[in-house]
């Protein structure tokens, strides 16, 4: 007969925060259930997310690299790229300044109406992009409230770059503030108080203490804000007027080409935007993996 075995020595050590994985039979499913669920989830993701992405690049390159290159170096396409970059370069910094200011006020101070303000900041997320465009047409369009005054002073906002910037600012409004508010709330005021007690003034306190604490969260917000700013379609479509070479951003250019049945060119420009999305996702994953601890809790992986 075998010697008596002390089973307690054979059990794997139980760690207090053991991840909820297959090991613990009490809190997981049978292997075949796990396998089936995983397969179902991945098939769903494959069909709904990956396939469209692959499709963009396939369609773009269907007629060869030559056609692809030609579509991208077309002067209208280049103008669209330039305008898209310009709009993002204005809209993102504006929302950056707003996001920091709003987060400072909301996270660091107590005041009445704070919840209302937080809700209002999120408002643009629940407004259709088309409505976002519409509101500026109603204000600044030829028949809008300020229309006659703008025409009299020879100023154009709708069907011009300022309108596109405004619409983009609206739809990307909450991104940076939303990242920073929970992050700064989690961090509390102790660091700032310490800096002040050591004699730092308000700016030094922000520059040397707050900013280093929030820099990764800030970058994360900028990344998302920028992706949306460059890719926005609905809101911009309403205010742009689709003037080639002048008020056409990249997404609008995709639409024009597509409606002209120039599919190869449409997908070529679309592939640039898809590339931007991929770069955004990669950077976002890197941020989450490397600096997860310095993002707000909801972003940690």
């Amino acid at each position: 007969m075998n010697q008596a075995t002390d089973h307690s020595l054979l059990d794997p050590p139980q760690l207090p925060f053991e991840p909820l994985l297959q090991r613990n039979a009490v809190v997981t499913e049978q292997p075949w259930v796990r396998w089936l669920l995983t397969a179902a989830a991945l098939v769903f993701l494959g069909f709904f997310l990956l396939l469209p992405l692959v499709g963009v690049f396939t369609e773009a390159l269907r007629h060869g690299l030559g056609v692809y290159w030609q579509a991208l170096t077309d002067s209208d396409a280049l103008d669209a790229v330039r305008l898209t970059l310009l709009v993002a370069a204005i809209a993102v910094p504006l929302n950056l300044v707003f996001g920091v200011a709003a987060a400072w006020a909301i996270a660091k101070f107590e005041f009445r109406g704070k919840t209302l303000l937080t809700t209002l900041i999120d408002l643009p997320f629940s407004v259709s992009p088309v409505v976002a465009g519409l509101i500026y047409v109603l204000l600044f369009g030829a028949q809008g409230w300020f229309g006659p005054w703008l025409i009299a002073h020879d100023l154009q906002i709708i069907f011009a770059v300022p309108g596109i910037v405004l619409a983009t600012v609206f739809v990307t409004f909450p991104f940076i503030a939303r990242e920073l508010i929970p992050l700064m709330q989690e961090q509390g005021n102790d660091d700032e108080m310490a800096a002040l007690s050591l004699g730092a003034n308000g700016w030094q306190c922000f520059r040397y203490v707050t900013l280093p604490n929030i820099k990764w969260g800030l970058l994360y917000g900028v990344l998302l804000c920028n992706a949306r700013a460059m890719g926005e379609f609905g809101a911009v479509s309403v205010v742009s007027g689709h003037i080639r070479g002048e008020t056409n951003t990249m997404p609008l250019h995709v639409e024009i080409l597509y409606n002209e049945y120039n599919f190869a060119a449409a997908f070529a420009v679309a592939s640039l935007l898809a590339g931007l999305a991929l770069v955004t996702l990669v950077l976002k994953s890197i941020l989450e993996a490397r600096h997860g601890g310095e993002l707000s809790t909801s972003r940690r992986h």
Partner: peptide, 26 residues
């Protein structure tokens, strides 16, 4: 005043030396 916080509130992106020197450098 010199204030020591319960959870220290050390600036985590600064070295020990920079932390101690902070009050003088600002």
């Amino acid at each position: 005043i010199g204030f020591v916080f319960q959870h220290y509130a050390l600036f985590k992106h600064m070295t020990v030396l920079d932390n101690i020197a902070f009050g003088l450098t600002v």
